[in-house]
Design a protein around this nucleic acid. Structure first.
Lengths: 190, 190
DNA sequence: CCTAAAAAATGAACCAGTTTAAGAAATTAA
DNA sequence: TTAATTTCTTAAACTGGTTCATTTTTTAGG
């Protein structure tokens, strides 16, 4: 049993004890060292990862051969290349552990069969997808509505823990500007 | 019965005739003149809109008091302020008809009861949310991976119909730059 | 069909953020 | 504990895209 997962799901839908049991048999515990890859571009995404402990980043290599981070995940977040899962195609993204990391993998294989057995899980994942979508829409709003500097300060205010856990140049990549520019902003802070 | 909706759903899940019937009783046909609002910021989003005919834009007013378009919808797309729906809070966005537009409203009220009666609908909307999320993630990738000019040309190539149907300054707003800059790009095309 | 209003185009001055380059500081591995 | 590597900082020159002001074209309605 994985109480951390069960309790997260419990915030959205009420599973019976049997359903919890069934789900926990279905998921798979995986551990990664720092810098290890949960997923590499070109491979098929094996399923949906729930972070128990640690931090990961999801990124792609863009046309200029730079790494562009699209998302981080920390404890109690789901992360996956949903494009790869939905359209059964090779992943575009890398997912990499930035600390020693422990995740639960919900394999995509037969997942619809699992959902047939536990329809409440389908609701749970509908809500997770909706939340992810809303977060992503908000991010687009921030990108267009704020200057890079405002967006940096805003991110800092909302996610102070984060800044301790990931190197600054990765934050710069996530926020869409250069480490040099970030350094300039930080120097200004006085 | 609304065959256009039923056939769209049919691409993802198989409903029985009774289920189709039940769903169609649940949705509500609405018609809007050009420039009419399906939703205004500050009000609660009444539910999920499925476009039968026409075009709408979804936008917010940013800190500089400019309209920032976050999304368009055309035939067979769902559109809503999912943040408002999910968190039962007033909408941040406006949704406005750009042509005479006909939509089906799936009211949010009791929608979970409807999903209990037709669990396959929950799967359908999970998939819709996942698709929307993927699209939104891709858009963030484009924003960071391409210059404004590249993004404009890329959008044109993928959505040629669109350019005929919406004024250019709205496209510029959606793509995140000024109408003046867009004009410059277009002039260059020779 | 004509006019007022809305949308699109143009040009010049300007600025937020990039690029390039070099060095300093902090981590990591051995 | 040192060498190697990764991360952070600083500064000057540069550029993609904005702003402001004006003109031209298109659209809608009486």
């Amino acid at each position: 049993m994985y109480p951390q997962l069960i309790s997260h799901i419990g915030k959205y839908v009420q599973l019976t004890h049997d359903e919890e049991q069934l789900l926990c048999e279905y998921v798979e515990l995986r551990q990664y060292k720092k810098k290890a890859y949960l997923l590499e571009a070109g491979k098929h995404c094996p399923g949906n990862f729930f972070t128990l402990k640690g931090v990961t980043r999801m990124y792609l290599i863009n046309d200029d051969l730079n790494e562009q981070i699209v998302q981080f995940s920390i404890e109690n977040w789901w992360i996956a290349d949903y494009d790869s899962l939905l359209n059964k195609q090779p992943a575009r993204y890398y997912i990499q552990a930035l600390e020693p990391t422990e995740v639960l993998l919900l394999p995509d294989k037969n997942v619809e069969h699992l959902f047939d057995q536990i329809p409440k899980l389908e609701r749970y994942f509908r809500i997770m997808m909706q939340r992810a979508y809303v977060a992503s829409q908000r991010r687009i709003g921030f990108i267009y509505g704020m200057s890079d500097e405002e967006r940096y300060r805003h991110f800092l205010k909302l996610n102070p823990e984060f800044v301790q856990r990931v190197p600054q140049y990765m934050l710069a990549s996530y926020l869409g500007f250069t480490p040099q520019f970030m350094s300039r902003i930080r120097a200004k802070k006085v």
